[in-house]
Each structure stands twice: as C-alpha cells, then as structure tokens.
C-alpha cells in the first residue's frame, strides 16, 4: 500500500510527523555504536567466559560455545576489545545522555514512559501481535508494549553505563560497585544487560520487518503516511488539541508553511497531564 503511494503522483495523502529529527539521529548513531560495544565486549568477555545457564554441574547453555567464538574470530583479542570498548564507551554515553536530556526537555518522554494503563494494555498488544486476539487499544505514538520496551531499554542503557563504570574503575567507584553487589556481581549484571540488549534487538528487528516500510520510513524520513486501518486514532481537526511537536528540530525547515506537517504549538511546552493521559 505504501509502495503504491510512492508511485501515484497526484493524489493527496494524509501524513503525520512521527519521529523528530533529533530522535532519528540519536537512534541511528546509537545503533552502530552499540554494535561496536557489544562486539568489543565479546572480545573482552572471552578472556574469562565463565557464565552459563544451568544448575549444579548441569549446563543448559554455555556463554559461549567454542564454535560460536571461532565463527566470529573472537579468541585472543582482549587488548583489541578493550581498546575499542573504552573509546566507544564515550560515544555511547554521550549520545545516550543527550538523548535522555532531549526526551525530558522536549516533552517527548510523555510518549515513551508507560502510563497507568500501559501494563494492562501491553498484554493486549502481545496477544494481538501473536495473532491470538484482534484489535488494539487506541494509542498515541507508541502502544503500551512499545512504551514498556522502549523505556526499559533506556533504563538498560543507564544500567550498562553504571555496571560498566563499576567494573572499569572498581576502586575509584567503590561505592557504586558495592551498591551493585560487588565487583563480580557488577560484571555479571553488565553481561546480562548485554544479553538483554541483543534479545531486544532481535524482537525489535522482527517487529520492524513485520510493521513494514511505512513504519521504517518513519525512523528515517520522520513521517508516516496514515493508513485507513492505522491503529493510531485521530481527533477531528476542529477539536482543540495539544500537539506533539519538537519544532526547533524540524527536519525540513525550508518547506512552505502550508506544507508543514505539524504546526508549532506554543501550548505544547505546557502540556497538561490530563491532555496526554485521558481521553482514550
């Protein structure tokens, strides 16, 4: 459907601005940086690859099997892994930190942080995605499951920084390592978070493929063409609503005003709690 829209020239389409330019940058910077962090982390972890799933002497899954290491050319690259890890950590931390500030000051956090209904609704989303149940609760930018997943992944990022710092400088940040259960626990937590990141990545990629082109374009071009069956519900235009906007970072400032996707709303900075949470 969206591919058709690519070729039909004269018709008018409804679009919404989905991801502000800043968020698209944060997202696409984070992707390769996190990939380098995970790869170099693997080079480091190999030198003392002691973690496994199991009980007693029984091992269900070894992290990681030798064949896995060999296939990826992991063994004997500890120094290389450390040199990359302790350089790219800055990019990961700085990008994540600015992203965090952006979420707060743009008000975008309201669209990501789960609200009262999210935990109940997330279950419905999961049933829907597994084709067990039809129909989705009305949503804003993200559905309930997305809110929980995306907020979770931000917390995981912070967790990786803190556990990472406490195993990088366990003496100078003694209090942090103690808080996390000691040096060895902090290392295990750092590892578990990495596993969770890769699991998140797999689910994320699957969902992006299933969601299709229109959704993917949203993270590159910023807008999404409104589908007749879109789960996103819109208000009639005459109703006064508070807009979601991040106008200062609009990707296409050169557009004539009538073609702007979203008008700057001065009220948007004073978003009231009622406006965002109620009304579904």
């Amino acid at each position: 459907m969206s591919l058709q829209s690519f070729f039909i020239f004269s018709s008018m389409k409804k679009i919404i601005k989905k991801h502000p330019l800043a968020i698209r940058w944060f997202h696409w910077i984070n992707f390769p940086v996190l990939a380098v962090m995970i790869w170099s982390g693997l080079l480091i972890y190999w030198a003392n690859g002691v973690y496994r799933l199991g009980w007693g002497d029984k091992t269900v899954l070894k992290f990681f099997p030798d064949s896995f290491y060999k296939a990826l050319h992991i063994p004997y690259h500890l120094a290389e892994g450390m040199s990359f890890h302790f350089v790219f950590m800055w990019l990961f931390a700085i990008n994540g930190f600015i992203y965090f500030l952006y979420l707060i000051f743009s008000g975008e956090w309201r669209l990501i942080v789960p609200n009262k209904k999210s935990f109940k609704e997330a279950w419905q989303v999961v049933l829907h995605d597994l084709h067990i149940k039809k129909g989705l609760p009305p949503q804003k930018k993200y559905n309930a499951a997305q809110r929980i997943a995306y907020t979770g992944v931000i917390i995981m990022g912070l967790g990786s920084l803190l556990t990472g710092l406490s195993i990088y400088k366990p003496v100078q940040f003694n209090f942090l390592a103690n808080l996390l259960g000691g040096y060895e626990w902090a290392r295990a937590e750092h590892f578990i978070l990495t596993i969770l990141f890769t699991l998140f990545f797999l689910v994320h990629i699957t969902q992006v493929i299933i969601a299709g082109w229109n959704n993917f374009r949203g993270m590159v071009a910023g807008f999404e063409v409104v589908q007749p069956l879109s789960p996103i519900v819109f208000l009639p235009p005459e109703e006064k609503i508070i807009e979601h906007t991040s106008e200062p970072l609009s990707p296409l400032p050169s557009l004539p005003p009538e073609e702007k996707i979203i008008e700057p709303g001065s009220e948007s900075t004073e978003l009231k709690e009622n406006d965002t949470i109620q009304g579904t």
């Binding site: 989905k18 819109f234 996707i261």
Partner: peptide
C-alpha cells in the same frame, strides 16, 4: 487523546 495532527500533502 492523540498528540499528533494529521496533515495532507501530495504523493509527489
């Protein structure tokens, strides 16, 4: 409930 506003533009 939705903080977005839809907008009409041409397919081109």
């Amino acid at each position: 409930m939705i903080p977005y506003k839809e907008h009409e533009i041409s397919s081109k």
